[in-house]
């Protein structure tokens, strides 16, 4: 009798561990990497270093926030990297009118890009991966037509946006944090957030419950586009140069990785904003660790792959339950 109890308890514990891993594993991973680095990496424990890591990860977090929303609807947005490049081009082209008009132009372009994605997905029923693939390829092309090569920018407002701070905290970090709080609020507290999750979990049910499915999907893709544009502007401001050729390259993969590692399932219906932020930080710390110890760049890719496999494994355990 006792034996039987033990036997049935074992798989239950495994499932519980997997579920714990999916929800909190990413935070544990971040904590672990921090401890390891404090012990083994020289000069790691300094305000300057944390500032560097946070500034570098800020654009990834911002893009990943939008990606989390899209993935929450059981979609995916492959065009974020291209939209970043588009933002960089538009910013450079309109900066002559001043920073604010240029930002408005960027927002406009990003919104149009998001609307194009949203229309394909919500109105025409195109698979998100296909719909956004079009803009992933075409968006960078358009960016390069507008600005064929890297261009240095010498706008003081833009420069201070990229490198300025408030009491030692860079604007980039403040903006990313504010956006994370905002998106978390939207997901948890608003009608829109709840409708989004319901649509992601079961679209037919959401439709029959009279939810504005199309509108919600459109807004989600527009938000994703706008967030990618914000990231593109900030990265450009930091670099003080608009580089549509390479800005945002592979950003879609970084963002998806952050979201998935953070415990948001690709099957939609659940979004973890805290996990997404932690997921981005985890990948950043991992990359930083390997670079700081001068390990071959290919190791970074392998390490990332291992993290993704772990995350997917944890998610699978949860799904099976």
């Amino acid at each position: 009798m006792a034996e039987a109890t033990v036997r049935t308890a074992a798989p239950l514990d495994k499932a519980r561990i997997l579920q714990w891993l999916q929800t909190y594993g990413v935070y544990a991973g971040v904590a672990l990497l921090l401890i390891v680095n404090i012990v083994i990496t020289p000069h790691f424990l300094s305000a300057e270093n944390f500032r560097t890591q946070a500034v570098q990860v800020a654009p990834v977090i911002i893009v990943a926030l939008g990606m989390a929303l899209v993935i929450g609807t059981e979609g995916v947005d492959l065009s974020v990297g291209a939209v970043m490049a588009l933002a960089a081009s538009v910013l450079a082209l309109y900066l002559g009118y001043g920073l604010l008009p240029a930002l408005i132009a960027v927002a406009l372009f990003a919104a149009v890009a998001g609307l194009a994605n949203g229309a394909l997905v919500a109105l025409l029923g195109v698979q998100p991966i296909v719909a956004t693939l079009a803009l992933m390829v075409g968006g960078r092309g358009i960016a390069l037509v507008m600005l064929p090569q890297l261009e240095d920018l010498h706008n003081p407002s833009l420069a201070s946006l990229g490198s300025g701070d408030i009491v030692g905290v860079p604007y980039l970090i403040l903006i990313a944090a504010a956006l994370a709080v905002l998106i978390a609020f939207v997901v948890r507290r608003t009608t829109f957030g709840r409708q989004l999750l319901a649509i992601g979990d079961s679209r037919p049910a959401a439709q029959l419950a009279g939810l504005p499915v199309r509108r919600v999907l459109m807004v989600v893709y527009v938000v994703s586009g706008l967030l990618a544009a914000v990231a593109g502007v900030l990265a450009t401001a930091r670099l003080q140069a608009s580089d549509p050729t390479s800005l945002g390259n592979l950003m879609e993969l970084s963002a998806i990785t952050a979201v998935v590692v953070g415990g948001t399932p690709l099957t939609g219906g659940r979004i973890s904003i805290g996990g997404t932020v932690a997921g981005a930080v985890l990948i950043q710390l991992l990359t930083a660790t390997l670079i700081k110890h001068d390990l071959p760049p290919s190791w970074t890719q392998i390490a990332q792959a291992i993290v993704i496999v772990c995350a997917v494994y944890a998610a699978r355990g949860r799904g099976k339950r």
């Binding site: 309109y94 149009v112 890009a113 609307l115 358009i142």
Partner: peptide
């Protein structure tokens, strides 16, 4: 909106933007 994206390309080509 949809026209704008295409139009933007054309406008850019005609140098209607102001680069820094």
């Amino acid at each position: 909106v949809v026209v704008a994206l295409a139009a933007a390309v054309a406008l850019t080509a005609s140098a209607c933007t102001k680069s820094e």
